[in-house]
């Protein structure tokens, strides 16, 4: 499984776990704050995703993230960037 598949699967499964919404009903154009209305739950979700995917995020990274697809793009970019040896 490549990075893109891993990140998408992890994101969808994590979102499903946090929201109790089946994976097949979570679409990339859904607003994240609509799916996870509780801010404290959203913090937990972000910590969980970073831990699962081994990426680091900061508050400012999420400024342009509105939908599930936006978050997936961000996670994929981070995974790709962190995979490149410096």
């Amino acid at each position: 499984m490549n990075n893109q598949q891993t990140s998408k699967q992890t994101l969808m499964q994590t979102l499903s776990k946090f929201t109790k919404i089946p994976v097949e009903h979570i679409h990339l154009d859904r607003e994240i704050t609509e799916l996870v209305a509780d801010s404290f739950l959203l913090i937990e979700l972000m910590l969980n995703l970073q831990e699962s995917l081994g990426v680091d995020l900061e508050q400012e990274d999420l400024e342009e993230v509105h939908t599930v697809g936006d978050l997936l793009n961000l996670l994929e970019q981070r995974m790709a960037a962190q995979a490149i040896p410096v």
Partner: peptide, 17 residues
């Protein structure tokens, strides 16, 4: 604390928390 997230944004890592 509820007002914090609105004014300060969502902390997303342990350092920010």
């Amino acid at each position: 604390q509820d007002a914090y997230l609105e004014a300060a944004g969502l902390p997303v890592n342990l350092m920010e928390i």
